[in-house]
Design a protein around this nucleic acid. Structure first.
Length: 480
DNA sequence: TGAAATGTTGGGGCG
DNA sequence: ACGCCCCAACATTTC
């Protein structure tokens, strides 16, 4: 008769899955207490945003259900993990707390403190990564972190395909919690009256949780992967993977996605195009790891003095999808309705926000943070800096998207605009992305009244473009 | 993972 | 036949 192994705590964070979960794998042989802690205080202004909280609610529900099937209950707590986790470990007599690693600076600081607190009692916090790359180990020949995407991507490709996923355990030995957990509803993650139910349309579009992630992956590989190089740029089609929220919440690992894509029948070039997007995700996380100020400050310091003209009215028009540029308004309304926006359109709306409207990228970043179900600190802040021209391997600032041409190029028939901007639905494709140039009789026949049921552009494209380039020039003059 | 301005080339119409 | 112009198509450069 061997001694009963001591129980372990499995602390779920952004790894809400049972398959390919190395933290779970490390503890599955003995009694385990799974726990999730909603810790808004530690995250500060990067606490889980509104739309992401909707996702988190249902993802936790799915995770709790699959744990229960395997004989374990998910303990839900709210408050400071820095106090709760060491206390829980002490009460349970757990020698080890296992968790998935996080790149957010606030989380790293918190984990370091918790690790120290546990170590004082002879316990340990054991972190497991779900990323394909370790930012400390993947470095250039000079030993520095990569700051340019292409060599980074080549280095990742040289690593070859990742190992197969770890299967989920059939059954767990449950170590019951000595503390009373909260009911899921008590976490207060869903919008509740008097707040309007802005998430009403989310459930038709999304299936949070591990099973939903697998289903989405299979649907993408079956229906869209082969056409991905073109399809990914067509917001009116179902051409993107839509895996971003599943990946953010760790309902599926990049390793699972990578291997499934590799194993598919799609053309090799299509597979590589998609895998490069997964590598972008690795690159943003690596960048955040090495540059923890990424969410707040421009990586190129001269951009701290860029002459933005913060304007609440302009920001409101953008947020509400009332800029008068159809592709922009469609994107912003898709974001509000689905908690998600097609990536091509994210680039366009961000470019207009920063360049045509001269609004600080941090304000757009904050709006996305609150409205995206896939809001991810590394991806979101990296990509806003990329568009703003101040980030790692960024798009040059003078690369100013023309929202009319972008609309005509990527939504030529206008399905996307018609769907999300119904007041323009009856306009012929020829005028759909430039309604202010349409003849009066065409507008009348389509039921469009510019300045009435649909706005004129907040700023004329040529004027906005010239003003943005002037702002850039004045920043450069000031920088000497 | 730009767009616009500017430059170059070559075919065709025409005197 | 030839030069000239126009302009589309493409390439280069600039922001």
């Amino acid at each position: 008769m061997t001694a009963s192994p001591s129980p372990a705590i499995l602390w779920f964070r952004n790894d809400l899955r049972l398959t390919d979960n190395s933290a779970l794998h490390a503890v599955a042989h003995g009694p385990v207490l799974p726990v999730y802690v909603l810790d808004d205080a530690a995250a500060g202004r990067w606490a889980v945003g509104g739309a992401a909280r909707w996702w988190l609610h249902y993802s936790l529900a799915a995770l709790a259900a699959s744990l229960r099937q395997r004989g374990a209950d998910l303990l839900l707590l709210a408050g400071k993990a820095e106090a709760l986790i060491p206390a829980l470990a002490a009460k349970l007599g757990a020698a080890e707390v296992h968790a998935g690693g996080l790149a957010a600076p606030w989380a790293r600081a918190r984990d370091a403190a918790i690790g120290d607190a546990l170590a004082k009692d002879g316990r340990a916090l054991c972190l497991h990564t779900s990323m394909l790359t370790d930012p400390e180990r993947l470095r250039t020949g000079q030993g520095k972190p990569y700051s340019v995407y292409t060599p980074f991507a080549k280095a990742v490709m040289r690593l070859g395909d990742p190992m197969p996923a770890i299967a989920a355990p059939d059954r767990l030995r449950f170590a019951p919690a000595p503390a009373n957990g909260l009911a899921l509803d008590a976490l207060g993650l869903l919008p509740r009256p008097p707040v309007p139910d802005w998430a009403g349309g989310f459930a038709d579009f999304w299936q949070p949780g591990e099973a939903g992630a697998q289903a989405r992956l299979e649907e993408f590989i079956g229906d869209a992967l082969a056409e991905y190089p073109i399809g990914r740029n067509r917001p009116g089609e179902d051409g993107s993977s839509r895996l971003s929220p599943h990946l953010h919440w760790g309902e599926i690992s990049p390793r699972q996605v990578w291997r499934a894509v590799r194993a598919s029948q799609a053309p090799a070039t299509a597979k590589d195009t998609y895998l490069k997007e997964i590598i972008w995700r690795e690159f943003t996380h690596s960048t955040l790891w090495h540059r923890p100020d990424l969410p707040d400050r421009p990586l190129h310091p001269e951009y701290a003095h860029f002459p933005y003209q913060r304007n609440a009215g302009a920001q409101r028009a953008w947020q509400q999808g009332l800029t008068g540029y159809p592709i922009v308004d469609a994107g912003m309304r898709q974001l509000w309705r689905l908690g998600w926006m097609h990536n091509r359109v994210r680039m366009i709306v961000a470019s207009v926000f920063i360049k045509h409207l001269l609004q600080p990228w941090q304000d757009g970043e904050a709006w996305f943070w609150d409205t995206l179900v896939d809001a991810d600190l590394a991806n979101n802040s990296f990509n806003w800096q990329w568009v703003a021209g101040c980030g790692a391997d960024a798009s040059p600032f003078f690369r100013i998207f023309n929202p009319i041409l972008q609309g005509e190029k990527f939504d030529p028939e206008g399905e996307y605009v018609r769907h999300f901007v119904p007041e323009l639905a009856a306009l012929p494709a020829k005028w759909l992305h430039r309604p202010w140039e349409a003849p009066a009789n065409i507008l009348r026949a389509a039921g469009v009244t510019l300045g009435g049921n649909y706005p004129l552009p907040v700023i004329d494209h040529a004027t906005g473009r010239a003003r943005a380039l002037d702002a850039l020039a004045s920043m450069k003059r000031a920088a000497g």
